[in-house]
Amino acid sequence: MSLGKEFTKGIFSENPLFRLTLGLCPSLAITTSVNNGIGMGVAFTGVLLASNIAISAMRKIIPDSIRIPSYIVIIATFVSMVEMLMHAYTPELFTSLGVFIPLIVVNCIILGRAEAFANKNGILPSIMDALGMGIGYTLALVVISAFREVLGAGTFMGYAVFSGSAPSALIMILPPGGFITLGCILAFLNKMQNVKVAKKAKLNQSIAQQQLSSN
């Protein structure tokens, strides 16, 4: 499998949030503004990259029977490091993300990638895998938070979008808005998928008919 494919699969075909619906909690909780979404995405990508490299490098040393606890300790170490770095350099983001930074430890995507990919592959593919998954997750967070911030607060990354005083739908930045936004995006993606499948089936049918008539 080529490195490029490892990279792009995390963004499109196996997007952790939109395709596999993993890592839901932060994607619903912190996506009230685009800045938070980007901050969470970057922190997440950093932890995933570091843990994938470490686990892939140590995959032959870690005994099989205690691999899950070992992965959790490795991941928790990197999460603590990211937490301290954010506390020191981006205190505003640190307070607005709050409890969800330490909770990166129990994000199922990171443990899932460790178990499904990093412990079977070399360092270079694991780096590509982590970058793809991380960027895919970050993009998904940005999409959700863009909808919520524009509709709920009338701003995008803090800048006003609508001129004048357009009424904003406060519900979008309240908790229900998170569920509604993600539900609608998933429904839209399903619809796209269904249309694509139907088109393909129709195409196959017409090819089959042509073959039949030519015979």
Binding site: T21, P175, P176, G177, G178, F179, I180, L182, G183, C184, L186, A187, F188, N190, K191, N194
Partner: peptide
Amino acid sequence: SLQGMPIALITAALMS
């Protein structure tokens, strides 16, 4: 297209 996860999320939104 709403079957499964999407309708579950929208139901959760209404409960919320």
